[in-house]
């Protein structure tokens, strides 16, 4: 993906942090299209994985992460620590995917 290291702990094990650059974040709001909803409606009858939804959320999270990484790169960081994901549904159809962390410079 990128050469930026992302972790959700306070350190990058075995590396020393030389600079803390503060919080970086990435987010995206996505909604599914009607076709996916129809399939999902059918799946609601028989159960099982909603592959369309899984893919949608994966893609969206990747996009949010890309945006966070872009922010970090813009300020000269080479790692993001203590990363967290958060998902909130804004209306019944749309979801916000939000990711944030601390940009640092590793030696």
């Amino acid at each position: 993906m990128t050469d930026i290291i992302i972790t959700n702990i306070e350190v990058v094990p075995g590396r020393t942090i030389t600079q803390h650059l503060g919080m970086v974040q990435g987010n995206t709001v996505r909604t599914k299209h009607a076709g996916r909803d129809i399939m999902a409606g059918f799946k609601n009858l028989v159960g099982g994985e909603l592959i369309g939804y899984t893919e949608l959320l994966t893609e969206s999270r990747e996009e949010a992460t890309q945006r966070m990484v872009a922010q970090a790169q813009a300020i000269g960081a080479n790692a993001i620590l203590n990363v967290r994901f958060s998902t909130s549904s804004i209306t019944s159809g749309a979801a916000e995917l939000f990711v944030y962390g601390t940009a640092v410079v590793l030696e």
Binding site: I5, I6, T7, N8, V12, P13, G14, A40, K43, N44, L45, V46, G47, G48, E49, L50, Y53, T54, L57, T58, R61, V83, F85
Partner: peptide
């Protein structure tokens, strides 16, 4: 500790529907 290998975020997600 000590550690000198690679480190990177790993993620996995799934959406599972209920049945009727």
């Amino acid at each position: 500790q000590p550690y000198s290998g690679a480190s990177h975020l790993a993620t996995g997600n799934v959406v599972i529907s209920i049945d009727y």
